[in-house]
């Protein structure tokens, strides 16, 4: 199903997705997704478990390349460049399009080294200390850790770890941040901090977030995409995009009855 938002110009899109299907071996996890995502906005992916949200978001920075039998068909254009073009280097893609994972995954090293690793591999080694401070400040973590930057990152709380992961992602100055359920391992206070942080970051970055939490989607996102699964002929379930619109419309006046049922909690 195709949903187009045509109020803005092509240039304002960070991703334009055309007929994208992602499969693992002969199993199609999500199929025929077409949508355009806006720059400097927060787009939320919602939908029941197994509908392919993670699968899809991983194909936006070619993390799917790491899964041996995953295949992406269709076109994902990032600022006009087809991400799956032969000429495109996945390492450069991931440098421009950062990712924050569901479970905080800091490196088992000091807080400082967690940030400098990305800087070093990207040859951004001038003013390391300033860059570390800037990233941690942007991630709203600086005040909490500035006095023990050499502390092991694994000794931070879960919420701090996740903000550290956000900090190391923005340190390498990407354009876009993908977040796959970044708050699902966090308590409400830490979640609030991350949500507030997203509102600040969105001024500089385009953000894509997968979330299971309807309230979160409605609170933080400007645009919202709802996916669901449908049974295929062979009895397996393939994910599809049902509806994609601005968040307000989606939550007050969804055009699909499936969306309404999901949002109001009647299924999923």
């Amino acid at each position: 199903m195709e949903t187009k938002i045509t109020t803005k110009k092509e240039l304002d899109y960070v991703f334009t997705v055309r007929d994208v299907s992602v499969s693992y071996g002969d199993f199609t996890a999500v199929k025929n997704v077409s949508m355009d995502m806006f720059k400097n906005n927060i787009t939320a992916f919602i939908g029941p478990s197994g509908c392919g949200k993670s699968t899809l978001i991983r194909s936006f920075n070619r993390m799917n390349d790491l899964i041996p039998n995953a295949a992406v068909n269709g076109e994902i254009n990032y600022q006009g460049i087809n991400l799956y073009d032969k000429e495109v280097d996945p390492v450069q893609v991931r440098r421009r399009i950062g990712m924050v994972f569901q479970k905080p995954n800091p490196f088992p090293k000091s807080i400082r080294e967690n940030i400098t690793f990305g800087l070093k591999v990207n040859n951004m080694t001038d003013n390391l200390d300033d860059r570390v401070e800037k990233a941690l400040t942007q991630a709203a973590l600086w005040d909490e850790v500035k006095n023990d930057l050499d502390k092991n990152a694994l000794d931070l709380s879960g919420g701090q770890q996740q903000r550290l992961c956000i900090a190391r992602t923005i340190a390498v100055e990407p354009d876009t941040i993908l977040m796959d359920e970044p708050c699902s391992a966090l308590d409400p206070v830490a979640t609030k901090k991350i949500e507030d942080l997203m509102q600040i970051l969105v001024k500089d970055f385009s953000i894509l977030i997968v979330t299971h939490n309807m309230q979160q989607a409605s609170r933080v996102s400007n645009y919202c995409a709802f996916f669901t699964t449908k049974a295929t002929d062979d009895g397996r379930r393939t994910g599809e995009l049902v509806e994609y619109s601005d968040t307000k419309t989606m939550f007050t006046n969804p055009s699909e009855s499936l969306t309404e049922e999901y949002i109001s909690g009647r299924f999923g």
Binding site: M63, R94, F107, F117, C165, T169
Partner: peptide, 20 residues
Amino acid sequence: TIRQGALALGSTRFQAIFRQ
């Protein structure tokens, strides 16, 4: 998740493996 975290920062496979 350590490998993924390193790769997601734009490191090469080699860097991810030998530095993390």
